[in-house]
Write a protein that binds this DNA or RNA. Structure first.
Lengths: 122, 122
DNA sequence: TGTTTAACTATCCTTTTGTATAGTACTTAC
DNA sequence: GTAAGTACTATACAAAAGGATAGTTAAACA
């Protein structure tokens, strides 16, 4: 086996399998129903907790707080606490978070076409 | 309210919320750990059940058969049975399935960079 | 004859995800 | 004083996703 070969459980992977891996990595960070919607909401500007909750249709407080924590861990979202009275917490996208813009645009375009397609069929 | 306004539960949606909807539509079809990996595998050519199972790392037969059915429902994948002896079943991407190529490419690129980033940090 | 391959399905179980509901501590508006 | 808003956390629960293991039918291979 040459140096630099990608392996899993001891055997060399095929081209196809290898090209799946990075997509899987992306999927892991963006998985679930809410992460991309939250990120999209923050692309429109910095927001406070309840503002995001209002803009992402159907999300509950619990999910929002959990997903924001996940996104913070992955350095896609930044949480800033202003120690005014009362305390104000603001969420914003990091630069890294903004790098998802292309991904979101492509998904939005595909999603639009998909929705149209469904309409026509129904 | 003007004609053509998008609403949910009776009130007009903001720009941000509206731009979330198509992404949510896309996410619904592509949700889960396995759908994109399976589609990627089929982008490399038509395949039989066990071939896909071998190329998508970690998938079980159960998951594969379920996900293939889902993808067939959404017209992304076509299932062809050749009534040879023994029966041979071949899976292929439909033209619509191929329209996901851009999505996958963008995700792969982002995923690669993400993986690199993780490496450097660790 | 026993094993292997192909293409699944079935069953059981665990984990993850998501929902519903309530509660807290503080502040401003009425 | 009461209600409402802000930014959450806590608890309990239901549903969906995923995993482990085994079984089926039928042919081919050794």
């Amino acid at each position: 086996m040459k140096n630099g070969e990608v392996t899993i459980e001891g055997h060399t992977l095929g081209e196809c399998t290898k090209s799946i891996l990075p997509v899987r990595d992306a999927l892991e960070v963006l998985s679930g129903k809410w992460k991309l919607p939250i990120i999209i909401s923050l692309m429109f500007g910095n927001k406070r907790f309840s503002q995001i909750a209002r803009e992402v249709p159907g999300i509950t407080d619990k999910m929002l707080s959990k997903e924001l924590r996940d996104l913070e861990c992955n350095e896609l979202v930044k949480r800033t606490v202003f120690d005014s009275i009362p305390v104000v917490v603001e969420y914003s996208l990091t630069e890294y978070g903004h790098s998802l813009k292309v991904v979101i645009e492509v998904l939005r375009e595909w999603g639009s076409k998909h929705r149209e397609r469904m309409m026509v069929e129904a």
